[in-house]
Computed example of a mutant assay.
Amino acid sequence: MDARYVFAVRFRVEPAAGGVSIDPEEFETRLSRTADPPGEEGWLFFRDNLWRGEIGDERHFRELTSEALGVTVTSVEYRALRTDEEYYEALKDEIRANLPEFKDDSVAAVVSKYLGSSVEVEH
């Protein structure tokens, strides 16, 4: 099983030495975060951080990303959950087993509510 959350991250580099400058000062890159296996600690990352395919609390997420990368992050945008079929089926099974926790009536509704249409199943 393999899955990862993908984000577009814009960050600023601030030279530590005086008299040094860079151009441009901001860069954009892709950040991948491994998705925890369904049912294991951390598997609810999507529920806790995403809403309709967007980051729920961008400021907080930007701060966490800054800490993880060691640079000043100016923006973070969720792009997709890239997953293989095995992980995606296991994720849907785990959601189904915990459906009351999501306060929804179907797995499809939960996936849409948190991930929007941003799930990419790789074959």
Rank of each mutant, 00 (worst) to 15 (best):
V13D: 01
V13T: 04
V13P: 01
E14L: 09
E14M: 09
A16M: 04
A16T: 02
G18F: 06
G18A: 14
G19V: 02
G19Y: 03
G19A: 05
V20W: 10
V20G: 08
S21I: 06
S21T: 11
I22A: 07
D23I: 05
D23Q: 13
P24I: 12
P24L: 13
E26Y: 08
E28V: 12
T29S: 13
T29L: 11
T29Y: 06
T29M: 13
R30H: 14
L31F: 04
S32M: 08
T34R: 12
T34L: 04
A35L: 02
A35N: 01
D36S: 15
D36F: 10
D36L: 12
P37H: 01
P37F: 01
P38R: 08
P38H: 05
G39D: 03
E41N: 06
G42K: 10
L44A: 11
L44G: 07
L44Q: 14
F46N: 09
R47E: 07
D48P: 11
D48K: 15
N49Y: 14
L50Y: 02
L50H: 05
L50K: 08
L50C: 07
W51F: 09
W51H: 13
W51C: 09
W51N: 13
R52Y: 03
R52A: 07
G53A: 10
E54F: 02
I55Y: 07
I55C: 08
I55G: 09
I55F: 06
G56T: 08
G56N: 11
E58C: 11
R59C: 09
R59S: 14
F61P: 05
R62W: 00
R62Q: 11
L64G: 09
L64V: 02
T65G: 02
S66I: 00
S66D: 00
E67P: 00
A68E: 03
A68D: 01
L69V: 03
G70C: 04
G70H: 05
G70A: 04
T74P: 09
T74S: 14
V76H: 04
V76T: 05
V76P: 03
E77R: 14
E77M: 04
Y78D: 01
Y78H: 05
Y78T: 00
Y78N: 02
R79P: 02
R79N: 07
R79V: 05
A80W: 05
A80C: 03
R82L: 13
R82W: 08
T83L: 06
T83K: 09
D84W: 08
D84E: 12
D84I: 09
E85H: 15
E85L: 15
E85T: 14
E86H: 05
Y87V: 04
Y87E: 07
Y87K: 12
Y87N: 10
Y87F: 10
E89D: 13
E89F: 06
E89M: 12
E89P: 06
A90L: 09
L91I: 03
K92I: 00
D93T: 08
E94A: 06
E94V: 01
I95Q: 08
I95T: 08
I95V: 13
A97Y: 08
